[in-house]
């Protein structure tokens, strides 16, 4: 195998992307869990530990750029490295949603507003399951597996719509909680966007294997308020 150096470095980066993905999965699950426990200390930890994810993203980006410069890849290797650059960026942005949820949690503080914890957890679990499988498909370069995931985004979208309507209704009947209701909507928004970004990872798996850049679902508004 004449490209042993390139192949072994690609494997290393793939493993690190997998690890970064696990950190992001844990961050969103923890952030959602603290909505239930209302452990604000833990929320602060999640908020602060986002910097670890940011640093890892830059380290990976740097490793990818070095490989591009030194190994001068073509064809599938080139597509893989270009896709990796995008995926590490997606993962970093997804972690920002976890950070955003932790920040909102701290802001809600001791308010006694009813947080739809169960639905938030369902959204987070579904999103994490999608992310986990999308990263497996990415690393195994399995386009069929990747192509099947984006449609599951509907489950997250339905939960979002449910929370949205319930929260608006709550705010109408309890106008003094308007501000907190708005916070609840942002949490839902962050989880919904988190799942949307899984689709982008799936698109890159298709790109690596076929060379085609294609949109797998038409996400609505890209307005990004994750940092709240």
């Amino acid at each position: 195998m004449p490209r042993e150096t390139l192949d072994s470095k690609l494997t290393q980066i793939q493993n690190e992307i997998y690890l970064l993905g696990s950190m992001v999965e844990q961050a969103i699950l923890d952030a959602t869990n603290t909505l239930k426990t209302r452990d604000l200390k833990e929320a602060k930890r999640i908020f602060e530990e986002d910097t670890v994810i940011n640093e890892k993203r830059f380290a990976l980006e740097n490793a990818i750029i070095i490989l591009l410069a030194t190994q001068q890849p073509f064809a599938r290797d080139l597509r893989l490295l270009a896709a990796m650059l995008l995926v590490v960026n997606e993962l970093e942005r997804m972690a920002d949603y976890a950070k955003g949820i932790a920040k909102i949690n701290i802001k809600i503080g001791k308010s006694d507003i009813d947080i739809p914890v169960r639905d938030f957890q369902k959204m987070a679990e579904q999103s994490v399951s999608m992310l986990h499988r999308s990263l497996s498909a990415f690393i195994e370069q399995n386009p069929n597996q990747a192509a099947a995931i984006p449609q599951e985004d509907d489950i997250v979208d339905e939960l979002y719509t449910k929370i949205y309507h319930a929260t608006i209704q709550y705010a109408i009947t309890n106008p003094s909680y308007m501000d907190q209701a708005n916070d609840i909507l942002w949490i839902a928004h962050n989880l919904e966007r988190f799942a949307d970004r899984v689709t982008n990872i799936c698109e890159r798996t298709i790109f690596i294997t076929t060379g085609e850049l294609m949109e797998m679902s038409s996400n609505d508004d890209e307005t990004d308020l994750s940092d709240f």
């Binding site: 195998m1 004449p2 490209r3 890849p73 073509f74 064809a75 290797d77 597509r79 076929t210 060379g211």
Partner: peptide, 19 residues
């Protein structure tokens, strides 16, 4: 050719995995 060759032999050759 250099981003998305159609033939496997081309892919192997340009990505240095020929033979």
């Amino acid at each position: 050719i250099f981003t998305n060759p159609h033939e496997k032999i081309t892919e192997d050759y340009i990505s240095g995995r020929f033979g």
